[in-house]
Amino acid sequence: MFIGAIARGMRVTWRNMFRPQVTTQYPEEVRPKPPRFHGRHVLNRYADGMEKCIGCELCAGVCPSSCIYVRGADNPPEAPVSPGERFGYVYEINFLRCIFCGLCVEACPTTAITMTNLFEMSFTDREDAIFGKDLLLVGEEGESRHEGKNYDPLSLSKRGGWMRATSPGGDADYEGIPGWPSDAGRGVETAETGQHNLPSVNAEGSQEGSGAVSEGYP
């Protein structure tokens, strides 16, 4: 009674026992994130350190879950925060509401807000879920102020592909095309090389043991 079939099934499980495991030991070992990963947002700066946000509230308007709160203010003439008239005086994102759709990134006229590959955002308090400018704005060197464990603050490279592909100045086949003036972090970056060679985006050695995973991306 189905003995042949049972034997075939047993052979499959037996063979599997000697195959290398696919498990990623997460806290120690992080899988590289795809370039278009929808992680948490950052507010970017120009190469001279000026903030890109002009406080126009388009992101807040387009947000389907109303998780963004922006209040603009006039730039102080003697020490402007952003080039232009106004800047984002208050900028808050409630990450308990955010659905990481990325519409804010599409709406932003200055690429001030982009998404990153950062995803470790657990909090123990509802208040902590609201990220203000102190956490969202990248630092003077273009580093993200992120508190995740497996995180290299200067790793904000290769995360803007999705934005480039969907923005008016971008190209779906974005390889080699700097379709947008800048990207997350600070200043202007060189064109992407495409998704074929995923960079090690997180902690050292994160590529080890997970080679099979990165092959999954086209």
Binding site: T13, W14, N16, M17, R19, P20, Q21, V22, T23, Q25
Partner: peptide, 10 residues
């Protein structure tokens, strides 16, 4: 452990 190995887990 054995079930994990047979399912290519750790």
């Amino acid at each position: 452990k054995f079930v994990a190995w047979m399912q290519v887990r750790i």
